[in-house]
Amino acid sequence: MTAACPSAPRPVRPPAGHPGLLALAQSYVDDAAARGELPRRELGGLPGTRVRVDPEFCRTVARHFDRAPRRDLGPDLAARYRRFTEENLRHFALLARAGIRVEPWRGPGQPYRGAADLVDRLARTGVLHVYLTRDGHGPGGPAPDHPLCAPSGVTVGGVALLHNDIFRAVHDVFGHVMLGASMGVAGEFLAAYGHMAMYSPQVHPVVFTEQVSQICWFFHGPHLADRAGRWPRRGEPGWIPPSERPYPEQKLFSCPPGFLDRFTASFTEEAR
Score class of each variant (00 low, 15 high):
Met1Leu: 10
Met1Gly: 14
Ala8Asn: 12
Pro14Gly: 03
Leu21Trp: 01
Leu22Pro: 11
Ala23Thr: 11
Leu24Glu: 02
Ser27Arg: 13
Ser27Asp: 06
Ser27Asn: 08
Asp31Glu: 15
Asp31Tyr: 07
Leu38Thr: 08
Glu42Asp: 15
Leu46Val: 04
Arg50His: 09
Val51Lys: 04
Ala62Leu: 11
His64Ile: 11
Ala68Asn: 07
Leu73Arg: 11
Pro75Ala: 15
Arg80Gly: 02
Tyr81Arg: 04
Phe84Lys: 03
Thr85Gly: 03
Thr85Cys: 06
Glu86Val: 04
Asn88Phe: 02
Arg90Pro: 02
His91Leu: 15
Ala98Gln: 06
Gly99Pro: 08
Gly107Glu: 02
Gly107Met: 09
Gly114Ser: 12
Asp117Phe: 01
Leu128Ser: 09
Thr133Phe: 11
Gly138Thr: 10
Gly141Arg: 03
Thr155Asp: 07
Val156Ile: 07
Gly157Cys: 14
Gly158Asp: 08
Leu162Trp: 11
Leu162Tyr: 13
Phe167Ala: 08
Arg168Thr: 10
Gly175Pro: 00
Met183Leu: 14
Gly184Asp: 15
Glu210Arg: 02
Ala225Asp: 15
Asp226Ile: 09
Ala228Cys: 10
Pro232Phe: 14
Arg234Ile: 13
Trp239Tyr: 14
Pro241Lys: 05
Pro241Trp: 12
Lys251Gln: 14
Ser254His: 04
Ser254Cys: 11
Pro257Gly: 06
Pro257Cys: 12
